[in-house]
């Protein structure tokens, strides 16, 4: 635990990323980027257990 805490020092000054009027803390930026990465993986990665093609009729919409 102490090792983990030593890795990220929370007692120092926070880091910020700035571009003109736009400013975000590094911690928030990392969270946003990880969320976008998780979203991209969720849309692209194959869902397990659905190898065999299933009848196409089921896909028909109810619009």
């Amino acid at each position: 635990m102490a090792l983990l805490a030593a890795l990220i020092n929370l007692d120092g000054r926070p880091h910020y990323v700035q571009s003109g009027w736009f400013q975000i803390s590094l911690a928030n930026l990392i969270v946003v980027l990880v969320m976008i990465a998780v979203f991209a993986l969720a849309v692209t990665l194959k869902f397990p257990g659905h190898e065999e093609p299933v009848a196409q009729e089921e896909v028909a919409g109810d619009e």
């Binding site: 979203f39 993986l41 969720a42 849309v43 990665l45 869902f47 257990g49 089921e58 896909v59």
Partner: peptide, 12 residues
């Protein structure tokens, strides 16, 4: 569920 639900995005 219909086949198109077999995607990770529906797990959220």
């Amino acid at each position: 569920q219909p086949v198109y639900v077999a995607s990770w995005i529906y797990v959220f």
